[in-house]
Design a protein around this nucleic acid. Sequence first.
DNA 1: TTCCGGTGAAATGTAGTACAAATAACCCTA
DNA 2: TAGGGTTATTTGTACTACATTTCACCGGAA
Lengths: 238, 238
Amino acid sequence: MVKLAAVRSLHGQVVQELGRLIVGGGIAPGANLPREELLAERMHVSRTALREAMKVLSAKGLIESRQKTGTRVREVTYWNQLDADVLAWRCDLMPTDDFVEKLVEMREIIEPAAAASAARNRSDAELATLDAAYTAMADAVDRDAWAIADLAFHEAILQATHNELLASLFAVIETALGSYFQLSAQTASNFKYSLPHHKKVLDAIRRRHPEVARQAMLATVTDSRRNIRRHTKTTGAS
Amino acid sequence: MVKLAAVRSLHGQVVQELGRLIVGGGIAPGANLPREELLAERMHVSRTALREAMKVLSAKGLIESRQKTGTRVREVTYWNQLDADVLAWRCDLMPTDDFVEKLVEMREIIEPAAAASAARNRSDAELATLDAAYTAMADAVDRDAWAIADLAFHEAILQATHNELLASLFAVIETALGSYFQLSAQTASNFKYSLPHHKKVLDAIRRRHPEVARQAMLATVTDSRRNIRRHTKTTGAS
DNA sequence: TTCCGGTGAAATGTAGTACAAATAACCCTA
DNA sequence: TAGGGTTATTTGTACTACATTTCACCGGAA
């Protein structure tokens, strides 16, 4: 359900392939990749394209290259976990309950604070954007429309904080919501379930009441956590 | 005061140079870079090295390349603001009060929550690491030793949450503390000023009291915010 | 005039070769 | 056995050539 991006460039594909291989555990941290010439041949690309891909993975903290020694996978600690690609790969390949739990914890930390900040700092234009997103949620006719509007709602709040560092955490929220949609897709219950929660958040931000917004958002996230918990218990997977 | 990294590889230097140029506002978002051949010649490197550097900057969200159109600087919204390099460049080139304020806001959101989580999830080994960092702070004989120990203390807490997403935010904390050290360097007052605050945090985590840890950490950050405020008022710069 | 389609040119994308630089591993000597 | 120099291996850089994409221009038809 995550963006497949359909990377057209060749090195982009290599980034995807190697990135997923590493994040998925195909190559253990500390282990070496085959040497460039070999790997390039094996993947049917030129060394040029391969190297450009490896530079990207290196920027994401996944690998590290040194002359003579070769290229090796770095310890998980050094991975740029907040990178959109790394998040997407991880969530796609290892959506364990454990990881989903960590995503929810992030939401519980970030979003209530962001809602409070948005209530303090929002402009009228940003309120309008948020309002539009809420209306789209209310008018959604199916799950997809709801998901898009929901994402827009949460993004609008992050933008309204006027703190771009906070806004950059949208990648995390996006991933968390994505996995939530996927998990709650099987539970056939009403998908507009959380609309009232969102309305409280919207109203609080409109009236510039930071603490009310914080509490309302916390309730929203806590509620979705409970929703996931219920589902994982039901299926009882892994 | 941030890590200068002394990048040895050529494309690493190009990444630094172009990255700083872009983040520093030398090239406005939306504007195009010179074409590769030209830029490579101008920077006295091969097109190969330049392209590898541009792939890295592309991974950080700073630029975007398309055939025929060329390479252009992306809007600030798309920048990977949480990337360690981007943070370091920005803090180095534009340490405006405005930006420092945003860093502090991030700390106020992240660190109290992290302290609470650490109090719940810490292992004995992680407590020992935290304890060692505290001792090093207490024993610090100069500003540098204090700074190193202080960083270790805050990193240990993030690690103890057992949430690697949270831990990845250390780059933000590191940058924030770095700018704080730099700002408070001129104020000649006692640099161990905040030691008692840290002790309260440590004790709460030791005793596994999440809410106490949260409040103690919040007090610590709030206090440092006040400290910065006082300083900026004193100098009254920009 | 305006719209549509084809065509060319300009930029990035990919391939391949050759060589430079760093350094781990080996060997040779004292 | 220890020390130091040499070699071999791997990544790093340069250069060339060509492929691919796509904007922009031009020409013809409605």
